[in-house]
Amino acid sequence: MTWRCGIAVFPGTWSERDCAHWVELAGGEPVMLWHAERQLKGADLVILPGGFAHGDYLRTGAIARFAPLMDAVRDHALAGGPVLGICNGFQILCEAQLLPGALLRNSCLQFRCQSTHLRVEATRGPFLAGLEAGRILEMPISHGEGRYYAPPEQLLELEAHGQVALRYCGPAGELGDEYNPNGSLQHIAGVMNREGNVLGMMPHPERACEPLLGSEDGLHLLRAALALVGAS
């Protein structure tokens, strides 16, 4: 059986085809979900890809969160279904309050498009369950507003509940400002909800899915999730 991966498409989404290719490589069946749809067309998991939904007007993700499709995504997430937000998708999940915190303008004030190393911090939830803690993944980022922020008390809570999923790091997993491309607090590159079924990350796993792209590490996340969906 092939698992259906719904890929949300908002006006201004730009990474849905890359995501579809990634899903196919991982052995899933991609299904595009236009933002005006009210249901997920039988998707087992949902991906919110990168881009500039609704032109990033007002704030990144601020308008997209009101899309009819987002009601269905919210129901799916609250029922424990896997949801992955990548880049703009992460920003949308934060605005929709399915994930804590917010993404702000990079501290360098530049759009950053580069390869990054990520350290796996949490190994629960559908996307990271197949990985060991401390593993280093290589994936590119491509964003101007990826500086993760949460109020101090919420940051403590995130750390205490193991919700920090990924951190920017050096090639050997070392943490430092020189490896943090956007000024994210605690070098955070990805966070999950308390339950672990909703993951948001600024780096692009779908752009690290075959040797030609320089890394296949992005496949791990999706293969883990598909294996889990298949087992349940």
Binding site: L104, S107, C108, L109, Y149, P152, G183
Partner: peptide, 12 residues
């Protein structure tokens, strides 16, 4: 931006 939030644009 809330006073506790760093504002790199303002610094620039």
């Amino acid at each position: 931006l809330k006073p506790v939030v760093n504002d790199p644009q303002g610094l620039a």
